[in-house]
């Protein structure tokens, strides 16, 4: 936040001075970050940089040690339940019930999110992530890629204002990555506000608007995607985060 123009932007996600300590160990040290409405931000960082911690704090799963953050205009400390209704969350764990079918999972979470017209919404999402033909199979029979796509459908169920994605690609085969990539690109086109955290520079570069690098609990670099190409990003990443 260094230019006057930026202050006019309406931030959908706004993080100020956010710190998190696990005992004496710092995971985040004074994070400042803003994501404008409709923006797709890719957050790169090596394992242990604090990506998961940041996303979990924004998703109200974890309280911060210090600092504030607002998601969709609501304070993460005071309006947790309000935020939970407005965000979609995908992590490397599918967060699904594997003894239920895909359809049952969506219906269950739909009821928790008070989704109206569940049936139609379920049809639409299963179609979008390409699982219509397997909707009545138990989730535990799904491949990792299918589970991850269903997890995305679950996260989109209530048409959230903000999507938080934490290493959604981890453990996926190349084909599944490509498939997920398509779905995410669709989100970017539809002007969803997205925060994608990943350690892999190949993922998310194409479809994002802005990039940031997180290392050792700090945002060490931030800029427009169009400002640099892959080579330059890789060099930057190596410089700030050590290994590329």
């Amino acid at each position: 936040m260094n230019s006057g123009a930026e202050q006019q932007i309406q931030w959908e996600v706004e993080v100020k001075g956010l710190s998190k300590y696990f005992g004496p160990r710092p995971a985040l040290r004074g994070i400042n970050l803003g994501i404008a409405r409709g923006e797709f931000l890719a957050l790169f960082g090596p394992n242990g940089a604090g990506k998961t911690t940041l996303i979990r704090i924004l998703a109200t799963l974890l309280p911060p040690t210090a600092g504030t953050a607002k998601v969709a205009g609501k304070d993460i400390r005071r309006e947790g339940e309000g935020i939970r209704g407005l965000i979609g969350f995908v992590s490397h764990l599918p967060l699904l019930y594997d003894n239920l079918t895909a359809r049952e999972n969506l219906s269950f979470f739909g009821r928790l999110y008070s989704v109206l017209d569940l049936e139609a919404r379920g049809d639409e999402l299963l179609e979008e992530v390409g699982l219509t033909h397997r909707q009545h199979d138990l989730v535990r029979t799904y491949s990792r890629g299918m589970q991850q796509r269903l997890a995305l459908a679950r996260a989109l169920l209530h048409d959230p204002a903000v999507l938080l994605l934490d290493e959604p690609y981890s453990g996926l085969d190349p084909q599944a990555v490509e498939r997920l990539q398509e779905v995410l690109a669709g989100l970017a086109r539809r002007n969803k506000t997205v925060l994608l955290a990943t350690h892999n520079l190949e993922e998310g570069f194409e479809i994002s608007h802005r990039l940031a690098i997180l290392a050792q609990g700090r945002i060490v670099w931030e800029g427009e995607r169009d400002a640099l190409d892959r080579q330059e990003l890789r060099a930057l990443y190596r410089q700030y985060a050590g290994a590329g």
């Binding site: 300590y21 004496p24 710092p26 040290r29």
Partner: peptide, 9 residues
């Protein structure tokens, strides 16, 4: 504990 944290930081 707090001193340790401060030192670490």
């Amino acid at each position: 504990e707090e001193l340790k944290t401060a030192l670490e930081v």
